[in-house]
Amino acid sequence: MNEPKPTVALIYDFDGTLAPGNMQEYDFIPAVGKSNREFWSEANALAEEQDADMVLTYMARMIQAARSKGLSLRREAFRESGRRVALYRGVREWFARINDYGARRGMHIVHYINSSGLKEIIEGTEIAGEFRKIYACSFLYDVDGIAYWPAVAVNYTNKTQFIFKINKGVESVSDSKEVNRYVPEEERPVPFRRMIYVGDGTTDIPCMRLVKSSGGHSIAVYNPDQKGARRDMAQLIRDNRVNHVCPADYSEGSEMDLLVKTVIDKIALDYKLERMEAIRS
Rank of each mutant, 00 (worst) to 15 (best):
R181M: 14
G215H: 08
A268L: 02
V190Q: 10
M233T: 08
S174Q: 12
A220C: 10
D270Q: 10
S176I: 15
M208E: 08
D257M: 03
A248I: 09
K261V: 04
N180M: 14
G169K: 11
D175H: 09
P184F: 07
D257A: 00
K212F: 06
V198E: 05
E171C: 03
S176D: 13
D204E: 12
M276A: 11
S251A: 05
L259D: 07
E277R: 15
V221T: 07
C246A: 12
V198D: 08
V179E: 09
H217C: 15
R209H: 12
E274R: 08
I264Q: 07
K168H: 04
D232Y: 05
E252V: 08
K177A: 12
G199M: 06
I166T: 05
K266W: 03
G199S: 07
A278K: 14
Y197M: 13
R194H: 07
M256A: 14
M276H: 05
T203R: 10
A278L: 12
V173E: 15
R280A: 13
D239H: 10
E186L: 12
D200T: 07
T262I: 00
N240L: 11
R280N: 08
A229D: 07
V190K: 07
N240G: 11
A229F: 00
R209P: 00
D225M: 01
E252R: 14
A234E: 15
L258E: 10
R188Y: 02
H217Q: 11
G201W: 00
K177L: 13
K168T: 01
A268N: 08
I237E: 04
D232C: 03
R241W: 07
M276P: 00
M195L: 04
V170I: 10
I166M: 07
F192M: 15
N240Y: 13
I166P: 07
A234Y: 06
T262N: 14
L236M: 13
N223K: 09
S174G: 02
D200H: 03
S213K: 13
E277Q: 14
R231E: 15
A220E: 03
T202C: 03
V173K: 05
G169E: 12
K165W: 00
R238T: 15
K212M: 09
V221S: 01
D270A: 11
R230K: 15
I205G: 05
G228L: 06
E185R: 11
